[in-house]
Design a binder for these strands. Structure first.
Lengths: 346, 346
DNA sequence: GCTCTCGGTGATATCGATAACATATCGAAG
DNA sequence: CTTCGATATGTTATCGATATCACCGAGAGC
């Protein structure tokens, strides 16, 4: 023990627990206990230790600690993108929920591709997270295998996967979009158009489109007015371009539904730029209830999703499983709410 | 060695490197080398090992590795909020730049307070990051001490701190806002108002306000038209409320400059809602060049900041110092660019 | 008084990898 | 034929903490 202290006579870097222990005149085990929440240490000893900790500027090394305790205190989460405020909200919900537990979030961006997700999952697993939160239910086979053999709880969010890996916290994008169509149909709109991205890599986008198509069919309304524009996530600008394309092909479209509020906002602004009246000439609705949808003029009708709550509940689910040690819990599906928010744009 | 394998006869959890080594008939050291980039291992051996790795579904445990190599591969970054797309862009720049190096980002939110920042820094340091990126130059004394004794490179971003800790990647918010004032003054506006948050905890906001005040004074224009509204970050909604307050007190204001594009957008929408013509009745400008500023109608004049580049360069700076081992580098100040983007709102 | 329990503390053995040094093999150089 | 150097691999000793068990003293219960 004395070796560490004498070989490095306070000469330079990072003091270790041994240094603290020597200075406080106790064993490292006692220091370890004093720095833990529930550690049983007498008040006097704890004070001595704290003095030593402060004098030395000691900061606990968790990477060492997690090796012996076999608990890293990490939780990994993958979102498609953080530049999308919906997912930023979810990430926020996760972080807030984890904060009090001392768990640290490892955050990654998948860029909406399962390939990048697979790589990220592998990179994250090297850090031995105690749980992992994914966005959506589409994953590569290898990713599924990696997750399975990691033996940690997994939460899939933002969707209701057909074949869930483990836990789920989400909602049916299909139903949510269907509800929007039906709400607008009740207001009298009949010729509906839909704007979304081109590829199917954004599974939530595809599900919303399916929900749109199905609802239109069920209601017996004119079908086929679908514009795909740009690689998801479709931007404000692309929303504007897409609505132009929509109006060229189907000029009599009465209501345009967009895969997200961003594209809806782009469409709205483009229509205004062209002197169209909203919603008299054309109604526009989005999805996600972004802040911009609420405060732009006219406000955009949309579907509000509990983004923050999704993150919060996903994290809570994980914490339950992680901290509720051993007790093997069943798979659980948590449905989060959504609601249509009607504004002036429809 | 055989112990580990025999005591747990492939019975359950996470295989270790020993299991791989046994299966491949080599030592753990060889496995370790095979899994590393520059590891010198014969082709045949590497293949044997990879087979074993795949058979077992082995994933390297970096928390163990970083203990012996004394390199965690973590970089910590603190941003005020991820729900602000400017900072999300910066986070994105950091992540992208780190990706190829194998460094993993630990991201935290300070909520615009130095107290939360201090706590976060401490929590991050427990993970022994090899470098740390901060937003702004305001920190508690304790945070400064912690960083100093951690002995790792620090990059402060988004500002030009008066007393930098180490590296800096940023720009002068004061000058940038001053440039905006001068640009608009050249167009003939004389009665300028400023909208920002109430407290000074958002140092960048304060600097922008100072830049505004100073520029107005230098140009000899009417002073004093300052509205503070809401706790930073000031939202779209608060921007709308603030502009109302501005118009009540100083109805003849010709141009309103806002601390960010979000508040500018709120102000713009509120003015339109009231039937005002932009920019004839009132001109509005923001800061940050958010996507919404470019595509709303009318487009909002703003100051474009290289958010992504700030993150990228901050990360690059860290990587240079971290990987350019030992060679003690000097403190460096990297100035990032900004430019006024004139749109229809002025 | 004597066991029993429990709070407080220390000694020791890991956790799973890698650094550093040692060793073995083989061909080229002298 | 010996020596040297490069390449491939193994052995041993940590890295910095914590789990686990052992120990000791003090008050409680009988």
């Amino acid at each position: 023990m004395a070796k560490a202290a004498s070989s490095k006579p306070s000469e330079s870097y990072a003091p270790t627990m041994v240094d603290v222990a020597l200075r406080a005149g106790v064993s490292t085990m006692t220091v370890s206990r004093a720095l833990k929440e529930g550690g049983r240490v007498s008040k006097a000893t704890r004070e001595k230790i704290m003095v030593a900790v402060n004098d030395l500027g000691y900061v606990l090394d968790q990477s060492a600690g997690s090796l012996s305790s076999r608990k890293t205190g990490f939780v990994a989460a993958m979102v498609p993108s953080l530049n999308n405020s919906n997912f930023a909200d979810t990430a926020r919900g996760i972080t807030d929920e984890l904060e009090s537990t001392g768990l640290q979030l490892l955050l990654g961006y998948t860029d909406y591709t399962v390939e990048k997700e697979e790589k990220l999952i592998e990179a994250m697993l090297r850090r031995r997270p105690e749980g992992i939160i994914l966005t959506g239910g589409a994953h590569t086979d290898r990713a599924r295998r990696l997750l399975k053999s990691a033996g940690i709880p997994v939460v899939e969010t933002w969707e209701l996967p057909v074949k869930p890996i483990d836990q789920v916290v989400g909602f049916s994008n299909e139903e949510a979009m269907g509800l929007l169509v039906k709400t607008l149909a009740r207001k009298g709109y009949r010729k509906f158009g839909y704007i979304g991205g081109t590829t199917s890599r954004d599974t939530r986008g595809s599900q919303r489109r399916e929900g749109f198509v199905r609802a239109i069919e069920e209601l017996g309304l004119p079908t086929g007015r679908l514009v795909s524009f740009g690689v998801p996530p479709i931007s404000i600008e692309q929303g504007g371009q897409a609505v132009v394309s929509m109006l060229e092909r189907w000029p009599d479209t009465q209501a345009v539904l967009c895969v997200s509020d961003l594209s809806a906002f782009g469409a709205l602004m483009e229509c205004k730029r062209r002197g169209m009246r909203i919603p008299q000439d054309i109604a526009i609705a989005g999805f996600g209830d972004y802040e911009v949808a609420a405060f732009c003029h006219p406000g955009i009708t949309t579907v509000n999703v509990d983004c923050y709550g999704i993150g919060q509940q996903a994290a809570r689910r994980l914490i339950q499983v992680i901290r509720g040690d051993e007790k093997r819990h069943g798979q659980e599906i948590v449905l989060t709410g959504y609601r249509v928010v009607e504004r002036e744009s429809t």
